[in-house]
Design a protein around this nucleic acid. Structure first.
Length: 561
RNA sequence: GCACCUGUAGUGAAACGGAUAUCAUACCGGUCUUCGGAACCGUUGUUCCAGGUUCGAGUCCUGGCAGGUGCACCA
């Protein structure tokens, strides 16, 4: 529709003999200004030597009756041309939505594109904390938005199973007397890591021991160390897998730093012109490009994260059989570092560097500290979800409903967390207000889930009352909710191109609000109301939009709460 | 110190350079013998400071101020 109006105006300029200008057609902020507004008269006025409103007048006259579905055109404010759409347009859009069903909101703008999305990236032997939950939520949403555009999305997880942090954990395991044969858990590993990390930081005598361990882990020269390492790694990875299931992510491929280490080292040594030796290490002189100089191979000959990441780009290409685009989502603290990496990559693999995109998102901040924190300074993702799920359970009981299943309580908790994570621009830190999140009111994931469940319920009631969804009697004026509903596909597309899930969050919240208002004023399950069948159609379209929209955020839409 | 990012009601957020800056929450008041009250309706309250660019600036530019992050062998 936007394009139709844009084209019509461009043609008008030809017939009026005015030089073409760049202008926009967009939804006005206020619905009383119609469905679309155009700024062309203000932009072109000066060059054409006519006052904006006078020019707008001419354009409107030329456009009168020319565009299908446009009911009337008005001039307002400093010279905006506002387009009001006809009732038929909204009815047609509602029909389109209900007809498309699961496909409502999908488009083909990325059809045939193979896009790799890397996210989550936790480190085995270390805690899976709320920061990982954040990254996972962002990455999963980007992946799903890509799928809505018809892209072939490959979800990739890169896990750091080697490096100094692992040596910290192995040292801790030794100190705690953890041996193979006695079972241990992921939280035991967390304690071992904390012990090792503290010792490394506070006790200089321990540092060479851990460094030596690190080398042994890389080289696999010590049988006892290998055994601890293999067992710890397996426990950690199995534990992570339970979290991926919980949050609803299924990865296509897993990559490990241990695989990338030798590849990265070979790569760095093969390109001495890019990675010259300096002070015993191999570095990339980012300073020559206005960036930071960084070490790729340290003086002990071990590859740093940078070298491994370089190898990773190639490994992704090989294992996935090539790709058109690669997105890597991480916390923004490594933004600067990633610029260096991309620059270095442009010398080693120019074609891969050009296809690589880094999304640095913000971090989680908690306003109050009431959440469990059983491992010192980090909050485990599992504890976080469980605490909120417990509150969700209480809330359901309070509402006088049957006790929810664990799955349902978790689904509500994850809805609250993911909504809070994605509601703002992902580049900014997300603030998770625990007290507010636990209230589940307004502006929240559960609000959307509740609205969805409510629609499911009223549609059932309507069916029982004999109200069959139908288009035969339609009110003259479109409902407000219809005026929001038709925008869904364009929001999905914009959210993908802008890498902005928050656009979907804002849209769904607005839609749910409009529906709840509609619901409060209009009776749906009422067989005596001649408009009821159409209202049921509208309600069903909203249900589909909420369901498909929540899906792009990784939030479930249960039919009952 | 240098670089990058961010400053919007008490709080958390939104606003391709567009119209009277929007939403939620909190506060205050109201609706309903609930088609699911996790709801609906209403009141109060906001663009860090100083210049500049232009028909028009929260948005762009310059300079301040404040906060965050990063700056060589961690990831």
């Amino acid at each position: 529709m936007e394009d139709v109006i844009h084209t019509a105006i461009t043609e008008t300029f030809e017939t009026l003999g005015i030089a073409p200008v760049v202008f926009s057609v967009e939804h006005p902020g206020d619905m009383s200004h119609g469905e679309y507004a155009c700024n062309v008269a203000m932009v072109a006025a000066k060059a054409a030597g006519i006052a904006p409103r006078a020019l707008a007048e001419k354009i409107v006259v030329a456009l009168e009756g020319q565009i299908e579905y446009v009911d009337r055109i008005e001039i307002a404010g400093p010279g905006f041309i506002n387009f009001y759409l006809a009732r038929d347009f909204f009815t047609a859009e509602i029909a389109r939505a209900t007809g498309a069903g699961e496909d409502w909101g999908r488009n083909a703008s990325e059809a045939g594109q193979k896009i790799v999305v890397e996210y989550t990236d936790p480190n085995p032997f270390k805690a899976f904390h709320i920061g990982h939950l954040f990254t996972n939520t962002v990455g999963e949403s980007i992946a799903r938005l890509g799928e809505m555009q018809g892209a072939d999305i490959r979800r990739v997880n890169y896990q750091g199973d080697i490096g100094l942090h692992v040596a910290h954990a192995i040292y801790g395991m030794q100190q705690l007397g953890m041996v193979i044969g006695l079972p241990f858990t992921a939280s035991d590993l967390g304690r071992a890591y904390a012990l090792g990390a503290t010792a490394y930081r506070d006790d200089e005598a321990v540092q060479p021991i851990i460094r030596a361990l690190n080398k042994q882990i890389y080289d696999r020269t010590d049988e006892a160390v290998n055994a601890l390492y293999d067992a710890g790694r397996a426990v950690s990875l199995a534990y992570f897998e339970t979290i991926y299931t919980l949050v609803g992510t299924t990865f296509t491929e897993y990559f490990f730093e241990s695989e990338m280490a030798p590849k990265g080292k070979t790569l760095v040594l093969a390109h001495p012109e890019v990675f010259p030796e300096s002070d015993g290490a191999h570095i990339f002189k980012g300073e020559e490009y206005g960036l930071h100089t960084r070490v790729f191979l340290n003086k002990e000959g071990l590859p740093t994260y940078e070298a491994k990441e370089l190898a990773l780009a190639k490994a992704k290409e090989e294992r996935l059989g090539g790709y058109d685009h690669s997105i890597i989502s991480t916390a923004k603290e490594i933004n600067e570092y990633f610029k260096v990496l991309k620059m270095a990559m442009s010398f080693v693999y120019p074609e891969l560097a050009a296809k690589t995109e880094h999304i640095g998102h913000g971090m989680v901040r908690l306003t109050t500290g009431k959440m469990s924190s059983r491992t010192g300074d980090v909050i485990l993702a599992v504890d976080f979800v469980n605490d909120i799920a417990a509150a969700a359970y209480e809330k359901v009981i309070e509402s006088g409903m049957a006790a929810p299943t664990t799955e349902l309580a978790q689904s509500i908790a994850l809805g609250a967390i993911k909504y809070a994570t994605l509601k703002g621009n992902i580049e900014q830190d997300a603030v998770f207000d625990t007290t507010k999140a636990l209230s589940f009111e307004g502006d929240s994931g559960p609000y959307l889930q509740y609205t969805h469940a409510r629609i499911c319920s009223v549609l059932e009631k309507a069916a029982v009352a004999g109200v069959v969804p139908d288009f035969s009697v339609i009110p003259t004026e479109p409902y407000i909710v219809e005026k929001i509903l038709y925008r869904f596909p364009e929001v999905i597309e914009a959210a993908w191109h802008e890498r902005a899930p928050h656009m979907v969050v804002g849209y769904l919240t607005e839609l749910a609000g409009a529906f709840n208002s509609f619901y409060a004023h209009e009776k749906i399950a009422d067989s005596t109301d001649t408009l009821a069948p159409y209202k049921a159609v509208v309600a069903n379209a909203v249900r589909l939009t909420l369901k498909n929209g929540l899906w792009t955020l990784g939030i479930q839409a249960p039919e009952r709460l």
